Simulated scan of single mutants.
Amino acid sequence: MRLSLRLNGDRVRAFHVALAERLSQLPGIELCVDARPAAGGVPQAAEALFQLETLIHRLPANGTAGRVPISMLAGHARASQPADLTIDLVGDVEPQGRQVWRLAYDGVCGEEALLALILAGRTPLARLEQNGTTIAEGRLGTEYHGIALASFQDMLARSASLIVAAVNGAARSHLPVLPEPPSEASPPPMPPATKLGVRTAKAMARRIVQQIYHLCYNAPHWRVGWRQTGGKDLYDLRAHPQSGWRDLADDGSRFYADPFPVLYRGQVTLFVEDYIHRTGKAILSAVAFGPNGPAGVPKPVLELPYHLSYPFVFERDGEMWMVPESGANRSVDLYRATAFPGGWVKEATLLSDIVASDATLTEHGGRWWMFATVRDGGGAFSDQLNLWS
């Protein structure tokens, strides 16, 4: 099948190159790229926001939204014969008797529409459609709500997955439509249109300025909260209580995240991700808890040359074990404590050459099972839930 990919040649991104490569590798596909310049696109102010977010959040410079020269698509020159199917990412291809699949975000085509939805705090519905008929659709997720560039890159990567699945026939024709979470602070939904209107463009510009202001005056900072249950806990309440929370204090040069409490020999110990702003990566720390809360401040228990988080700690046969998240090392490793809560030594590599997050183990039916999320194609770290035994 001759397949044409229509994109804006004035704004070629790594996302387009990766998508073209994935499509060209599908069996029976002869791909060409229509990269003529097109109107619209992400405004220059947004590109400035992206650069600022890259510096402040230490985002990789070679993400899916990175601008690349059009020459990187030279291997997919325009075909001399008409395409059997055109995938339109711009929104300017008229069917005129040919098969055209148009990608839209909440009914609006183009990457500027996607960014506008992100800045408005929406969870876009990406839909491939042909003359009003849905070919494939899905909600686009991200773990970086509030960081425009990271969200944009996650959702571009998922857009590529949706397109590839639709072309190779793996996409389901009917997916559940997830409602937006209720929030009094939620902005109004984007108006349906084929192009962004003047009012929408102005609203996006205001939100870009607000994001830049926020970045300049509010450093990103996670917190760990703890509370006395005083009776019923989360399993009984089925909700997080709104009051009674206290912060695990930090010194401002770091933040704590991924809290993991364990009870060992009558002592509750809280393990946390200890992210140090100066180094741009996290170590694992721990602090003992008593009846009145933490007994001091978290102290380092495991530091490696790469980022660590989600310290999954458990007891087995009288010893304490841990599987920390080490996606930055492309591995999932098992550690044993020789001087709990410290003295961790590596006992085995459970998975290698994989970006897996939040590995969680359970023993059931005489077997060990491990759940973890796996990153797919440069998107969010929770794109796929995988299971090993």
Rank of each mutant, 00 (worst) to 15 (best):
P341A: 10
E315T: 08
S309Y: 01
F312L: 09
S309I: 11
S326Q: 15
V345H: 07
R316E: 14
Y335P: 13
H307N: 04
G343R: 00
V345M: 15
L304I: 02
D333M: 00
E347Q: 11
P341I: 04
M320V: 15
T349Y: 03
S309V: 00
F340N: 13
A339D: 15
P341C: 09
R330T: 05
T338E: 10
V323L: 14
V313R: 02
K346S: 10
P324Y: 05
P311F: 10
F312T: 10
F340A: 13
D333W: 06
M320Q: 04
E325Q: 01
L304N: 09
A348C: 02
E325A: 09
V313N: 01
L334E: 05
T349G: 10
E319K: 02
P341K: 10
G318K: 03
R316D: 14
P311A: 04
A328C: 14
G342V: 03
R316S: 13
W344V: 08
W321N: 10
E319C: 04
P341F: 04
G327I: 01
M322Y: 15
Y310Q: 11
V332P: 08
W321G: 12
G327D: 09
G342E: 12
M322Q: 05
A339W: 04
S309F: 01
S331F: 00
P324G: 01
N329C: 08
P341V: 02
P305W: 02
N329F: 03
V332K: 10
L334N: 12
G327V: 00
D317H: 00
V345L: 05
V323Q: 06
A337F: 12
F312Q: 14
Y306Q: 15
M320T: 15
D317A: 09
L308E: 03
A348G: 01
A348Q: 09
E347D: 06
A337I: 05
P324C: 13
E319V: 04
Y310I: 06
L308Y: 02
Y335W: 14
N329T: 06
K346H: 09
H307A: 04
F340L: 00
L304E: 15
D333S: 06
S331C: 11
A348S: 07
G343S: 11
E325M: 03
L351G: 06
A339T: 13
F340Q: 13
V313C: 02
P305Q: 03
K346W: 14
M322D: 10
Y306S: 09
P341Q: 14
D333V: 11
Y306R: 14
A348T: 01
E325I: 01
